[in-house]
Amino acid sequence: MSAIKNVLDQLLAGLCIALFTALVLVVTWQVFTRQVIGDPSTWTSTTAQYLFVWLSLFGAAYVFSERGHIAVDFLARKTGGRAQKAVGAFTMLVVLAFALIVLIWGGLRGVGLTWAQNVSGLPVNVGQMYLALPVSGALITFYALHHLRKIAVGREAGLPINEDEEIGRHTSSMPLIASQDPRITETRLDPRLDPRLDGSSDPDDDTQKGR
């Protein structure tokens, strides 16, 4: 499953780059035709809207593959490893339910209802544009199952992103809970890693005292 995830990550990254590039070019052409030529293009507005929707959906799926979305985890980090594991599993189940019900099931219904509706100024129909919903839902479903399996077997913690004022935010393939991060605990306990704990005076302080 990890090999499939890596392939999907590469494909999603390339797709997001292509969608973003196309969006920039379309919007640039729209501004150029409106402000410079004085004859606004009729297809750029609709195209930009659909490109933005596609970029948002597939970009969200790509970020979810790395569990990089913003999370309010203040209370969860106050608990132990088991509780954090339960929170992580519950979160994946909620995301899985949303992807299955809203994105896949709802998206397929939307595709079926709008397949016969043509998009003004474009050689496609609305149903084809709505395909981004079930496709992104299938991707998010796969990623949710992938992370849920890794959490269940203990290969991934419930809260994968460790946060510290000096370290910042990061995601690793073998994430730890905040209380088990050796970079934080060693810094707090080893005076060699934190000069404020060894009792020695700061040379700048001695200089100031001598003054």
Rank of each mutant, 00 (worst) to 15 (best):
H170I: 11
D164G: 03
W43V: 10
W29Y: 12
L23Q: 13
Y130F: 14
A157Y: 03
L11D: 09
Q208H: 12
V53E: 05
V102E: 09
P40S: 11
L113M: 15
E186G: 00
Y130P: 00
T91P: 01
L75M: 12
V63N: 02
V24T: 12
I4D: 00
K150V: 05
V126P: 02
R34D: 10
S136W: 09
E156G: 02
P160W: 03
Q10M: 11
V135A: 04
A3G: 06
E66M: 11
S45C: 00
T46A: 06
A71C: 04
T47S: 14
P182C: 02
P203F: 05
F98Q: 08
E163K: 09
H146S: 13
I184G: 05
M129H: 03
L55Q: 07
S45V: 09
V102H: 11
A86I: 13
P191R: 03
V53R: 03
L108W: 15
V24F: 15
L113F: 09
Q30Y: 09
T21L: 10
G80M: 04
V95F: 11
H170C: 13
D39R: 15
A152S: 06
N6F: 14
V24D: 05
I4Y: 14
G158C: 00
V7S: 15
P175D: 06
A132Q: 07
Y130G: 01
A22V: 05
G68R: 07
S120D: 15
R109F: 10
E163L: 15
M1W: 15
R183A: 05
T141V: 07
I177D: 06
E186S: 03
R169K: 14
T33Q: 09
F98T: 08
H170L: 11
V95M: 13
M92I: 09
D9H: 13
T187Q: 04
G107K: 07
G59I: 08
